[in-house]
Design a protein around this nucleic acid. Structure first.
Length: 780
DNA sequence: GATTTAGATATTTTT
DNA sequence: TATCTAAATC
């Protein structure tokens, strides 16, 4: 319907470009139908900088996609002359699909629609030499980066226990988020690591990257920025190219992304940013809410459009969210209201706030709610449980399994971050680029080939001295007697195999077939098949999945590039299942029924957030609360508990301050925390000391002590900190929990240190070394 | 060099 | 509690 006279992939002729400059309003633009006045304004304001403040559920994505479609359909620009940046691959994909749906073939050729990282990688590949790289540079993921940091720290003889590689990598990442190259880092920040060596380490890290012909994620943008700054001609080319810039989730941009956008927008000045300051929840990853707060100053003459009509949630849900977020200072300010009609649904349910005894009771209640919703004809997929931290998920999983309710955990370790997948990819990387030392180190002894740490260290020393890569160095070392025995044999077969695989690839063996061959011939598959741990089958399945995914790409290079930047390929199909996810992962999603458990001080708002970032941290936690509530369409149930087990210890906890910030009129509150004793307090335990037999996990200190003691004929445990530990065996059904306070008629009060359902280890406060417990332990 | 054991450590995670 | 890493032992 909006097809153009010529193929959109063809470069436009001069006259076409001239014609495109004069907007030709399309009177049949029915893609504009159904937009409200503000949305329409946001779509049609095409000149100059524009900030669209889009509250939750106000049609943000629709505006963005329609705007893109509008620009193309009105021939203001060719698809290839628009730059659209998102944060996630998923958002980019959705944007592309929706734009294509609106304008059909005319939208083909949206080459510059993608994530900040994928677009800056594209640009960097074209001009890599200006950053001292080859255009075939590899993009390192977090895992590689940490290993590299470790090497850098060790090279300086710094204790990696006191100063962890993870810490250094997060510092470097933080600087890159702020667009600081080693030279630009404020000198006093050097003291954040290894007694003032931080900046120096950052510098060596960067040098190592250059030698490896590699980039980390932050580099993609930093290199772009420096290239643009040093080469005005080149920047001018891109100014010519990008007539319109669209940015999604602007509140999440960091300094580097902001500078990058500023540089590119200087050409046309047609930059449209869409975002919501109230949904900025990635501050800990370098996002600067300030970017969106400062927009009008940064882009003079900017227009600001607010989208406040919410088409998602009931009035009670919106009132609850607004009430909480209103406690934040320094907002741009918007008030959400029900988009359809004055009141919305008059029968809408109020937001529920419930207090429970402990996490298990909370899980029971929520899962029962889900069950009764299903019994009334609801769908599992309509329900979501949103938690602050992933450790909170376990209780819900256990309960859902018990009830036989299908569920899916969203997020968690991603497909391409799994060890077996990264191993397989490292083999492929090494076959393709022998100089990839990080890949070499990863797989040279995986499966075991007798090449241990000592050998690798030796090789690294030589490689450093020679300025060669490990792979090219090894054949030379093998000529000498520096490496002997199993290590020598292992290295020989390793090198031979890699070379053989490379020949096969060059002789036209399809890459997915090669991947299978590599896994089989290297012994990797064997290793997993022999491994009888419960995860090994999943690992084999994952590898199968990987080979399948490989088959979808034309070339190995194409696949690797894809993998480096698009890490979310794993099985996406979601069936009819209850979803469990973190609040962070929930952004951008919505459900009819949303459960928000764990609203307790220290948990949510999280203690660490407050400790580390104070007021700023608290406000971000509050935005997280806002995001959580606004995910709900019809029903939102918030809950908190009185007792929670955190890191294996029971703690009594207080309701979150956010609970008090909810509006009374829109909330229905109830509490069941009136217990005076722990559940199970009425049950008795008879204590005798026994051999505990085999248990899968004795590694925790409590159980380890317990095991040491078992079967030694000893009647009591060792004295630790002047307190005796006694091991009791349950006489009946266990209702006791780790950390729970118990009472024994002889020994007085104690605390349960370990329990597996039938046996208890109790730490009694006032006891020295004592004998058999033959009497009952009672919960208090 | 591999395996076992002991100890420390613990959010959120778009690329 | 569960997981990861380093030291100790085989």
């Amino acid at each position: 319907m909006f097809s153009m006279s010529s193929s959109p992939n063809r470069r436009p002729s001069i006259s076409e470009m001239a014609a495109a400059r004069a907007p030709v309003p399309d009177t049949n633009a029915n893609y504009l139908d159904g937009l409200n006045p503000e949305q329409r304004d946001a779509v049609e304001t095409t000149e100059g900088p524009l900030l669209v403040l889009a509250g939750a559920g106000t049609g943000k994505t629709r505006v963005l996609t329609t705007r893109l479609a509008h620009i193309i359909a009105s021939k203001l620009a060719w698809p290839s002359q628009t730059l659209t940046v998102t944060f996630t691959n998923k958002a980019a994909r959705e944007m592309r699909e929706r734009a294509l749906k609106l304008i059909g073939d005319a939208g083909e050729g949206l080459r510059w629609l993608g994530t900040f990282h994928s677009i800056s990688a594209q640009i960097l590949r074209r001009h890599a030499e200006l950053a001292g790289l080859k255009s075939s540079f590899t993009i390192l993921d977090t895992d590689d980066v940490i290993r590299l940091c470790k090497q850098v720290i060790e090279a300086e003889n710094i204790d990696t226990k006191r100063w962890t590689p993870r810490h250094l990598s997060s510092l470097i990442d933080g600087w890159k988020n702020r667009a600081l190259t080693p030279a630009k880092v404020p000198k006093d920040e050097a003291w954040q690591f290894a007694d003032g060596k931080a900046i120096q380490l950052y510098e060596t890290y960067q040098n190592r990257l250059k030698v490896l012909n590699a980039c980390d994620f932050g580099d993609l943008l930093i290199h772009n920025i420096t290239i643009f700054q040093k080469n005005p001609d080149l920047l001018a080319d891109y100014h010519q190219r990008f007539k319109y810039i669209l940015v999604d989730e602007y509140q999440d941009t960091n300094v580097a992304q902001y500078l990058w956008l500023r540089l590119l927008a200087r050409g046309s000045n047609n930059i449209c940013c869409v975002g919501d300051d109230d949904q900025s929840i990635y501050g800990w990853r370098g996002a600067e809410v300030d970017n969106i707060l400062r927009f009008e100053k940064d882009f003079p003459g900017a227009k600001v459009i607010r989208l406040e009509r919410n088409y998602r949630s009931t009035k009670h849900i919106l009132a609850a969210a607004s009430s909480v977020i209103d406690f934040n200072k320094g907002r741009l300010g918007k008030t959400l209201y029900v988009g359809d009609g004055e009141q919305g649904n008059p029968d809408a349910e109020k937001v529920q706030v419930r207090g429970l005894w402990d996490g298990e009771a909370e899980a029971r209640l929520i899962c029962d709610d889900i069950e009764s919703y299903i019994n009334k004809g609801g769908q599992y997929e309509d329900c979501a449980i949103l938690v602050r931290a992933s450790w909170q998920m376990r209780l819900f999983e256990e309960r859902l399994i018990m009830l036989g309710i299908p569920y899916r955990v969203i997020g968690g370790p991603r497909f391409f971050e799994r060890a077996e997948i990264r191993d397989a990819l490292a083999y492929l990387r090494l076959v393709r680029s022998p100089d990839d030392d990080l890949a070499f180190e990863r797989v040279v002894n995986q499966p075991k080939r007798g090449v241990g740490a000592t050998t690798i260290q030796k090789l690294q020393t030589f490689a450093r001295a020679d300025g060669r890569s490990l792979f090219t160095l090894v054949p030379m070392v093998l000529q000498t007697d520096e490496v002997k025995g199993p290590a020598k044999r292992g290295l020989t077969t390793f090198i031979d195999q890699i070379n053989l695989w490379r020949d096969r690839l060059n002789n036209g063996m399809p890459h997915h077939e090669l991947a299978q061959v590599i896994l089989d011939e290297s012994g990797y598959t064997d290793m997993l098949q022999k491994d009888r741990s419960p995860q090994s089958q999943t690992r084999l399945d994952n590898l199968k999945e990987l080979i399948h995914a490989l088959g979808q790409f034309d070339s190995l290079a194409g696949f690797l590039e894809h993998v480096e930047l698009v890490m979310d390929v794993g099985g996406q199909s979601s069936g009819n299942e209850v979803q469990i996810l973190t609040l962070h992962a929930a952004k951008g999603l919505e459900w009819p029924m949303v459960f928000l458990p764990g609203w307790e001080e220290e948990v949510f708002p999280s203690r660490r957030s407050l400790d580390e970032s104070g007021m700023k941290g608290l406000e971000e936690e509050r935005r997280l609360a806002y995001v959580g509530i606004t995910r709900a369409r019809e029903k939102c149930a918030i809950s908190f508990v009185a007792n929670r087990m955190i890191f294996g210890r029971w703690q009594s906890v207080l309701p979150s301050r956010f609970v008090d910030e909810l509006p009374h009129d829109n909330v229905e509150a109830s509490s069941e925390t009136g217990y005076s004793t722990m559940p199970g307090a009425d049950q008795g335990f008879q204590g005798t000391i026994e051999d505990l037999g085999e248990r899968s996990n004795y590694t925790s200190p409590g159980w380890r002590r317990l095991k040491e003691n078992a079967g030694k004929g000893s009647k009591t445990g060792p004295v630790i900190d002047g307190k005796a530990e006694l091991i009791a065996t349950s006489s009946g059904k266990s209702g006791f929990k780790i950390g729970q306070r118990v009472h024994h008629e002889k020994f007085g009060y104690g605390q349960v240190l370990a329990a597996d359902g039938t046996k208890l280890q109790v730490n009694f406060k006032n006891v020295g070394l004592k004998k058999v417990i033959s009497t009952f332990v009672t919960g208090v």
